[in-house]
Structures are given as structure tokens and as C-alpha cells.
């Protein structure tokens, strides 16, 4: 086993162990109350809510997380009797979104408020999808637009069109290049890891809270590794400068592939 695989395995074990040894813990992300408030606002205005689960297929983990968010949003929409429209750009996402919403409306006890036609496939072309969704949003004038998942260059096209008509726009993505556009144009943006964490917190399941434990353990591990290596490097440089070259080689092997 190579040395970078060793670090890989240690990280995996730390995160998995933290997830399996989870404790009941109350935690919160800023957007959680905002999602419910947004849906309530849509109910007051008697206007629909739009949920766009990214523009990638189900083989993208962000799409899967977006569908977890969808379940929570769908539950709120069922409770407040808000029409939820979900345009999608991939056939498999359409099927999954229908299943998720069906389960959410059933759990909320309002399965009569749900119809699978609320999820509609448009086209696999991300820009064709966005052109259509922009048009739909301009005509339907939803009260709230949720944009969660993987977005590429089309993120700002969606965010700006939504902002122009919707009362509230909430977005979340883990694509670093698209986060700035959502931050600039949406009312609330879940930045990177916040997006994954929020979907877990919103569900409120013990298993999902366990996931947060794993996330935190990973971050603590990252901070710990950075600080430890930096402190060790300076200590070596000060007290054993002749061993510094060997130290750098060990670090290189452990963190194989990291570039300056």
C-alpha cells in the first residue's frame, strides 16, 4: 500500500468512525428557518415554489444531495399547500425526484396534493434546460426559487432570472467556480460544504446528524494535519536543519500529488 493510500485510509476510518459513533446533537444552519419561511411566504402569496436540482445527472453526488433537500422542501410545500414545480434536465433525476416527492407528500399526510406531472423533464442540454426554466419562471412568477446541486456556467442565468420575479431565492452548490454568482444574486446561499450539511440537518434524522459528525471529524483532521506538519517543519528547520530534506521527502510521499 502506498503512503498516500495510508493517509487516504486513515481519513476514511476517522470519518466513518465518527459517523458510526454519533451522538444526538442539536445543530443548525442559518438557512433552515429561511426555507420554511420562504415556503410559508409562497403560501401567503398563493404562488408556486420552484426547485431546480442542478443540471447534472444522478451520477453526481451533488444531485443526490439536492434530492435530499428536495424531500424537505416538498414536505414543507405539502404542509403549507404550496404548488411545487421541479423542472429537471435528466431523465433519471426526474424519476428519482418523483419518488422523493411522492414519499415526502405521503409522510406529510397530503398525498392528494401531489402529482408526478409537477416534475418535468426538459432536455439534457444544460443551456437548453436553463433557457426553458428561465422562461417558465418568468411566466409562472413563483414566490420562491430553490436552486440546489451541481451548476456550471448556467448558474447565474438561473439565479438572475429567479431573482427578477421571485420573492425569495435560496441556492446551494459545491461547485467553487459558481458559488460567487449565487452569493451575488441570491438571498441566501449555502456555500460548498454547507450545502451537504444543510440537507442532513434539515432531514433531522439521527443518521444524517451522524453524517455531520463525520464531516466535523474530517475538518478537525484537516486542521490538525496542516498545523502538525507546519509546526514539525519549523521545529526540524530550527533544531535539525540537516534532516529537513528528508522531512520534505516524507511529507511529499504522505501527501502524494499535492502541488505548489
Amino acid at each position: 500500500m502506498s503512503s498516500d493510500s495510508l493517509l487516504l485510509l486513515i481519513t476514511l476510518v476517522v470519518i466513518a468512525a465518527a459517523m458510526l459513533r454519533h451522538r444526538d446533537r442539536k445543530s443548525e444552519v442559518d438557512c433552515i428557518p429561511e426555507i420554511e419561511v420562504a415556503v410559508r411566504k409562497a403560501a401567503e402569496l398563493n404562488r408556486p415554489a420552484y426547485f431546480i436540482p442542478g443540471s447534472r445527472d444522478i451520477d453526481n453526488i451533488q444531485t443526490i444531495s439536492a434530492l435530499s433537500m428536495l424531500k424537505v422542501v416538498a414536505r414543507y410545500c405539502a404542509e403549507y399547500d404550496v404548488e411545487l414545480i421541479i423542472p429537471v434536465s435528466k431523465s433519471m433525476v426526474m424519476e428519482r425526484a418523483r419518488e422523493v416527492c411522492n414519499a415526502a407528500y405521503e409522510e406529510a399526510g397530503f398525498s392528494d396534493r401531489w402529482s408526478s406531472s409537477q416534475v418535468s423533464y426538459t432536455t439534457d442540454d444544460p443551456l437548453g434546460f436553463v433557457a426553458h426554466v428561465d422562461g417558465m419562471i418568468a411566466r409562472a412568477k413563483p414566490a420562491v426559487c430553490f436552486m440546489f446541486g451541481f451548476f456550471a456556467g448556467e448558474s447565474l442565468l438561473l439565479a438572475e432570472s429567479s431573482y427578477n420575479v421571485a420573492e425569495v431565492t435560496i441556492a446551494g452548490t459545491a461547485v467553487p467556480s459558481q458559488i460567487p454568482f449565487f452569493v451575488a444574486s441570491c438571498d441566501t446561499t449555502l456555500i460548498g460544504e454547507e450545502f451537504f450539511a444543510a440537507s442532513a440537518m434539515l432531514s433531522g434524522n439521527q443518521e444524517d446528524i451522524a453524517m455531520l459528525q463525520g464531516l466535523d471529524a474530517g475538518k478537525q483532521l484537516a486542521i490538525g494535519i496542516i498545523l502538525a506538519v507546519v509546526v514539525l517543519s519549523y521545529l526540524t528547520l530550527i533544531f535539525k536543519p540537516e534532516m529537513y530534506e528528508s522531512f520534505l521527502t516524507i511529507v511529499d510521499n504522505l501527501l502524494h500529488g499535492g502541488g505548489r
Binding site: 459545491a174 467553487p176 458559488i179
Partner: peptide, 15 residues
Amino acid sequence: VLITVSLGVIAVALK
């Protein structure tokens, strides 16, 4: 961002 996103993806995948 990349480190925390990767942790998010890992945690979701493990879930």
C-alpha cells in the same frame, strides 16, 4: 472550499 466540499462528498457517499 475544496477540502470541505470533498469532506461533504465523502460523508454523503459513506452515508
